[in-house]
């Protein structure tokens, strides 16, 4: 290498390094891609929160829907709740997965705050949670009509998350369902 070009080596290293570090500024180190994207919703046999009847995978698939993992011990779920109600009022089907919770507390929560869910699956031991790769609450899965998981959002679903992330996939999934 020519000696004069060699002088630019530190600058080159700096630019490359700065590029990586700049990219790092906008990455979320906690973000964890779901291993279940484009995989079918796992099978389960659990009970419904409202009346204790048995529920399985076949009872909750068939149309595009959101699956929301929540619990009464989860503070962010309380913040998320009014927005889920709004989505439900707009006609988005939402199934609840009541994750590692107490039935009575969960029923009281729904009485007091309203119930945006089609039905609530009681996952007291967190077994469905583990099959879904849930590691906290709230988490929201977008499942298509064939029962395939299309997206997983970790954290609160609010207006911004819905508009920027979930809604485009939601429309895509709806459009896919309408094709013969």
């Amino acid at each position: 290498m020519a000696p004069r070009l060699k002088l630019f080596l530190p600058l080159l290293i700096f630019v490359v390094l700065a590029g990586f570090l700049y990219r790092g500024l906008s990455l979320d180190p906690m973000a964890l891609p779901s291993a279940l994207i484009d995989k079918p919703l796992p099978a389960f046999t659990l009970t419904a929160l409202a009346d204790g009847r048995e529920l399985s995978r076949e009872d909750v698939i068939g149309e595009p829907a959101l699956f929301n993992v929540w619990a009464t011990w989860c503070i962010s779920c309380r913040a998320e709740h009014p927005y889920l109600q709004q989505l439900a009022d707009r006609g988005v089907p939402i199934y609840g997965i009541n994750y590692k919770d107490e039935d009575e507390a969960a029923r009281r929560w729904l009485r007091e705050l309203g119930d945006p869910y089609r039905v609530n699956i009681v996952d007291r031991e967190g077994t469905l949670g583990v099959d879904l790769g849930v590691y906290g609450a709230p988490e929201t899965y977008l499942v298509d009509a064939a029962g395939v998981i299309r997206y997983r959002h970790v954290g609160v679903v609010d207006d911004r998350v819905w508009r920027d992330t979930l809604e485009p996939i939601w429309h895509e999934v709806l459009a896919m369902g309408q094709q013969p």
Binding site: P33, D131, L132, G133, Y135
Partner: peptide, 8 residues
Amino acid sequence: MVARYGEF
């Protein structure tokens, strides 16, 4: 474990 939570 990897099937559920990824290689992570």
